[in-house]
Simulated scan of single mutants.
Amino acid sequence: MSVLVKPLVTEKVSSMNEKGKYGFVVKKGANKVEIKKEIEKMYGVKVENINTMVYQGKRKTRYTKSRVLEGRTDAYKKAIVTVAEGEVIDFYAGI
């Protein structure tokens, strides 16, 4: 069972890719050691550093004709992974 949920492909993270940093959404219970092992196994790169952040879900309200709908977005954990100099992770290789 993988601890990686999906790679982050946003404008901010894509600009960090040039510096050797890549973003991933990971499972909440995953620790840095598990994330490092999974990325090294899956992408074949050497991981030097990992920073993790836990984001809380935001409250959302939508006004419709019949009523007001309230809810929350999902909370998630994000990992910023720094790979060794000269190594690259290519997310689009299999497409």
Score class of each variant (00 low, 15 high):
residue 1 M to K: 15
residue 1 M to E: 15
residue 2 S to F: 15
residue 2 S to R: 13
residue 2 S to H: 13
residue 3 V to Y: 09
residue 3 V to C: 14
residue 4 L to N: 08
residue 4 L to K: 11
residue 6 K to C: 15
residue 6 K to V: 15
residue 7 P to L: 06
residue 7 P to D: 03
residue 8 L to F: 04
residue 9 V to L: 15
residue 10 T to V: 06
residue 10 T to K: 14
residue 11 E to A: 09
residue 13 V to M: 15
residue 14 S to E: 11
residue 16 M to T: 10
residue 17 N to Y: 07
residue 17 N to G: 06
residue 18 E to L: 14
residue 18 E to A: 15
residue 19 K to C: 02
residue 20 G to F: 12
residue 20 G to R: 11
residue 21 K to V: 13
residue 21 K to N: 13
residue 22 Y to N: 07
residue 22 Y to S: 08
residue 23 G to Q: 08
residue 24 F to H: 01
residue 24 F to M: 03
residue 24 F to Q: 01
residue 25 V to Y: 12
residue 25 V to R: 11
residue 26 V to W: 02
residue 26 V to E: 00
residue 26 V to A: 05
residue 27 K to C: 05
residue 29 G to E: 05
residue 29 G to A: 10
residue 30 A to V: 08
residue 30 A to I: 13
residue 30 A to S: 13
residue 31 N to G: 10
residue 32 K to T: 11
residue 32 K to Y: 09
residue 33 V to N: 06
residue 34 E to T: 08
residue 34 E to F: 05
residue 34 E to M: 10
residue 36 K to M: 13
residue 37 K to N: 08
residue 38 E to P: 01
residue 40 E to G: 06
residue 40 E to T: 05
residue 40 E to P: 07
residue 41 K to E: 15
residue 41 K to S: 10
residue 45 V to L: 08
residue 46 K to M: 07
residue 46 K to E: 11
residue 47 V to K: 08
residue 47 V to R: 06
residue 48 E to A: 01
residue 49 N to E: 14
residue 49 N to C: 06
residue 50 I to R: 07
residue 50 I to A: 11
residue 51 N to K: 12
residue 51 N to T: 14
residue 52 T to K: 00
residue 52 T to W: 02
residue 52 T to S: 05
residue 53 M to F: 10
residue 54 V to H: 03
residue 54 V to A: 06
residue 56 Q to T: 07
residue 57 G to M: 06
residue 58 K to T: 10
residue 58 K to C: 08
residue 60 K to Q: 04
residue 61 T to V: 13
residue 61 T to K: 09
residue 63 Y to Q: 07
residue 64 T to V: 08
residue 65 K to R: 12
residue 65 K to G: 12
residue 65 K to N: 09
residue 68 V to L: 07
residue 70 E to H: 15
residue 70 E to F: 08
residue 72 R to V: 01
residue 72 R to G: 02
residue 72 R to C: 04
residue 73 T to D: 09
residue 73 T to R: 14
residue 74 D to Y: 06
residue 75 A to N: 08
residue 76 Y to T: 00
residue 76 Y to L: 02
residue 77 K to F: 12
residue 77 K to R: 09
residue 80 I to S: 05
residue 81 V to G: 00
residue 81 V to P: 01
residue 82 T to N: 09
residue 82 T to P: 00
residue 83 V to H: 04
residue 83 V to T: 09
residue 83 V to M: 04
residue 84 A to C: 03
residue 85 E to L: 10
residue 86 G to K: 03
residue 87 E to Y: 00
residue 87 E to D: 00
residue 87 E to L: 01
residue 89 I to Q: 01
residue 89 I to P: 02
residue 89 I to R: 06
residue 89 I to Y: 03
residue 90 D to E: 06
residue 92 Y to F: 11
residue 92 Y to W: 04
residue 92 Y to R: 06
residue 93 A to I: 01
residue 93 A to E: 04
residue 94 G to V: 00
residue 94 G to L: 04
residue 95 I to V: 05
